[in-house]
Amino acid sequence: MNIFRLAGDMTHLASVLVLLLKIHTIKSCAGVSLKTQELYAIVFATRYLDILTSFVSIYNTLMKLIFLGSSFSIVWYMKYHKTVRRTYDRDQDTFRHWFLMLPCLLLALLIHEKFTFFEVLWTFSLYLEAVAILPQLVLLQRTRNIDNLTGQYIFLLGGYRGFYILNWIYRYFTEPHYVHWITWIAGLVQTLLYADFFYYYFLSWKNNKKLQLPA
């Protein structure tokens, strides 16, 4: 564990907490894409299939449980909670997530390190995580009215990806045989998707104005 990896995990954790805070205390999920949250739930479910069979550390297992639990509970809140679900922007959040899942599954079947059930699903989770933010970014673009918590949530998620890239660079130079092309390319694509959002986020921060995306 290096400082970049820890910083990445902590920003990831913070992003989830910000979202849960919004849903729990304000009882609102306005501006949050259910499609993206469902995709994250699938990402964690397919990636952490090894939770019972492979043990790395208490930290790892605990974090996996947190990400699994939080992603599924966020989906539950948005779909079934009597007040929260009424604040969901159903009509704007129309991204077809099948269009993301099928290509990711096909790509995982074609490009992977080993052709085994767990390995292909693990690779699928990497590809899917790379594009899972897209419905959220589309919704953001459509609603235009971005509250602070939603903006911070996406900012923290992007920060998490940035720190992971630094972590990979650090590990590549400090650990022998640390080469993971699939993880790196999927991670890089994912981080690049945030570039546009980051640009406007910093612009609004610099000018001390509310975050607003161009139409």
């Binding site: 990896r5 995990d9 990831h12 090894d50 069979t53 492979s54 790395v56 550390s57 790892n60 974090m63 996996k64 990400f67 085994t116 767990f118 693990w122 992971y164 972590n167 045989h177 640390y178 993971h180 993880t183």
Partner: peptide
């Protein structure tokens, strides 16, 4: 072993 040792990231 199902997963190799380097799959220690989240």
């Amino acid at each position: 072993k199902l997963f190799d040792d380097t799959k220690d990231e989240l």
